[in-house]
């Protein structure tokens, strides 16, 4: 089975979010970048599936050269090779067009992504690629098994889950508990250095959106502490001050 996993290069979940250049650019200073946590679940499940069924596992990122350490980490976790589409990922459509092109070219049986990126939280690239390639796209997938040419999975819905079956090839946007995050071991890290990382060109320049300005939420006021022996006061405040009861 040929598996493709698409990964984002995103600020660590503990990063302080700030902007520069008149609030038009993300401030990267002091920020550590990681594989998107949802993409990391997709990758972990892909490694397990490859162990079960054999075949190959490729990771793909649309990004500039700065994303290579993140891509190498995915190689250390267990991908065989990588593709970097050398372009600034301008928006979701731009990214989807690149992925669709290279996914088609590679003829993959299974394309795994994260349910959403943790920077722009679009949750849309998998659906766009699915539509562009005329393939089913299912998200958010929390359990995935492959039996022959059929995928069986569970998709999270509000308040529960639904179980689905679909024939390969198809696209899934993954989330936990599809697999446990894998931490690269020493052997993985060593071998990742020499695994192929192919840099390719963008195939389309189309976009649909652009960010005019970034904004931060207003600062939160101080907490009002209420004595633990006077919980009635809290109820009063919620009713009369916050007016939420």
């Amino acid at each position: 089975m040929k598996i493709l996993v698409c990964i984002t290069h995103v600020p660590d979940t503990t990063s302080k979010i700030q902007f520069t250049d008149n609030n038009t650019k993300f401030d990267k200073s002091g920020v550590q970048f990681i594989i998107g946590p949802y993409d990391d679940y997709a990758l972990a499940r892909a490694v397990e599936l490859k162990e079960q069924t054999g075949g190959s596992l490729t990771v793909l990122n649309v990004g500039e050269a700065e994303t290579e350490p993140t891509i190498r980490k995915a190689l250390a976790i267990g991908a065989d090779d990588a593709i970097r589409v050398n372009a600034f990922p301008k928006d979701s459509l731009f990214v989807a067009k690149q992925i669709a092109h290279y996914a088609k070219e590679g003829g993959y049986d299974l394309i795994l992504m994260g349910r959403e990126s943790i920077d722009f939280n679009g949750g849309m690239v998998h659906g766009m690629v699915g539509e562009l390639l005329g393939m089913p796209s299912i998200s958010p997938v929390m359990k995935l098994d492959i039996e022959g040419s059929t995928a069986k999975m569970a998709r999270e819905i509000e308040g529960g889950k639904e179980y689905l079956e679909v024939s390969l090839p198809f696209i899934a946007g993954c989330q936990e508990p599809i697999a446990e995050w894998k931490i690269p071991n020493m052997r993985g890290i060593m071998s990742a250095r020499t695994k192929p990382l192919n840099v390719v060109d963008a195939v389309s320049d189309e976009t649909a959106t652009s960010v005019v300005e970034f904004q931060l939420p207003p600062a939160k006021g101080d907490v009002k502490l209420i004595d633990k022996d006077n919980v009635e006061e809290l109820v009063r405040l919620l009713k009369n001050e916050a007016k939420v009861l």
Partner: peptide, 12 residues
């Protein structure tokens, strides 16, 4: 965006 940590004024 950034999981509620910021907003983006986005032009369509």
């Amino acid at each position: 965006i950034y999981t509620g940590k910021a907003f983006a004024e986005t032009e369509l």
